[in-house]
């Protein structure tokens, strides 16, 4: 119980710090929102009036209090560029980004775990050698390049999907999935390669330990030794790594969204940066930081579940 309280309290504190730091960082950048919105050609008076109405003339602490209060109500300010609440803009882009992330994560987990185990079963066997060669190669391929290749092969040549024709999940969920599987693969493949390698190393390390010999001496089959005894132990370090991968994927794949023309957060971010749309950029930065923090939090909890040795400390 203590452990959970401690973890939750520190999570909240760090989230607060993230919001504060993001806010401060944007105060340092020269040129404020009023200028960004009206452009350099606007009159001094017009800019000043807008500053007043946006509350930009208040002191920094006062503005932070306003901003923080807003966040607590789900209000991240108004986009300079679209004149819409930032929260709405972000919410509208969420399905594409989250959908992409979830499908990628599913792919990563479903493919990498069995492959990793398969490799470790017979180190330096044919299967292992082939998979190792593949993972070595695929790890080195950047996701966007893979995206281009996939578009070329499956989109333009095989015509399994129409490049650039994203379908919203609300419109036709099946079509959404059929489209998303391709960008998701582009994201997943390099990560799968890394995870397979990591899991394999972990399992092989575990297989050398004493308790495995004990399990064998009891008359367990090789398969039972692997699944009942080794897997849980081997997953302990993998969980951390997996957490990093998942946080990375959830935080958005800006480039892949560009390549596949997905209306996701990544695209929103790129456009917002170009237009100095600070409220939007700020909100997305907070989103990304929070995702990483929350995933880490979940990883810590999972760790505890899997490894009883951590519970006592």
């Amino acid at each position: 119980m203590r452990y959970y309280i401690k973890k939750i309290v520190s999570l909240i504190m760090v989230l607060f710090l993230v919001i504060l730091l993001t806010f401060l960082a944007f105060q340092v950048i020269p040129g404020d929102g009023a200028l960004a919105k009206l452009g350099v050609d606007a009159t001094e008076e017009a800019i000043e009036a807008l500053r007043e109405s946006l509350g930009l003339n208040k002191s920094i602490p006062a503005r932070f209090v306003d901003y923080f209060k807003g966040i607590l109500h789900g209000d991240f300010g108004i986009s300079y560029q679209y004149d819409q609440p930032v929260a709405e803009l972000v919410a509208a882009r969420m399905p594409a980004t989250l959908g992409l992330a979830l499908i990628s994560i599913l792919l990563i987990v479903v493919v990498s775990l069995p492959l990793g185990l398969l490799c470790s079963k017979k180190e330096n066997g044919t299967v292992d050698n082939i998979i190792t060669l593949l993972t070595q190669t695929l790890m080195a391929v950047p996701a966007f390049f893979l995206g281009i290749l996939i578009t070329l092969i499956f989109g333009l040549t095989l015509r399994w999907f129409m490049p650039g024709r994203y379908v919203a999940p609300a419109e036709d969920f099946g079509a959404f999935l059929r489209y998303m599987i391709f960008p998701a693969t582009a994201i997943a493949v390099p990560k799968i390669a890394m995870l397979v390698k990591f899991l394999k190393t972990s399992v092989i390390r575990e297989l050398k330990l004493d308790y495995v010999r004990t399990a064998r001496s009891k008359g367990n089959t090789d398969r039972a030794v692997l699944w009942k005894h080794v897997l849980k132990n081997a997953l302990i370090p993998v969980i951390t790594f997996m957490g990093m991968v998942i946080a990375d994927v959830l935080a958005g794949s800006i480039v892949i969204e560009q390549v596949f023309n997905l209306p996701g957060l990544g695209r929103l971010l790129v456009v917002a940066i170009g237009n100095r749309d600070y409220p939007v950029v700020q909100a997305i930065v907070i989103y990304i930081a929070s995702v990483v923090l929350i995933i880490n939090f979940i990883v810590d909890l999972l760790y505890q579940k899997v490894d009883p040795r951590i519970r006592l400390q």
Binding site: D210, Y211, T214, R216, S217, K218, G219, N233
Partner: peptide, 27 residues
């Protein structure tokens, strides 16, 4: 292998030097 497994644990069993590491830590 399969025949030997019938005997291992059942008719012949073994204990080891390191009781610290010979048990599965997560079971």
């Amino acid at each position: 292998k399969g025949e030997l497994r019938q005997i291992c644990g059942n008719e012949i069993s073994m204990i080891f030097q390191e009781p610290m590491t010979s048990l599965n830590p997560v079971m």
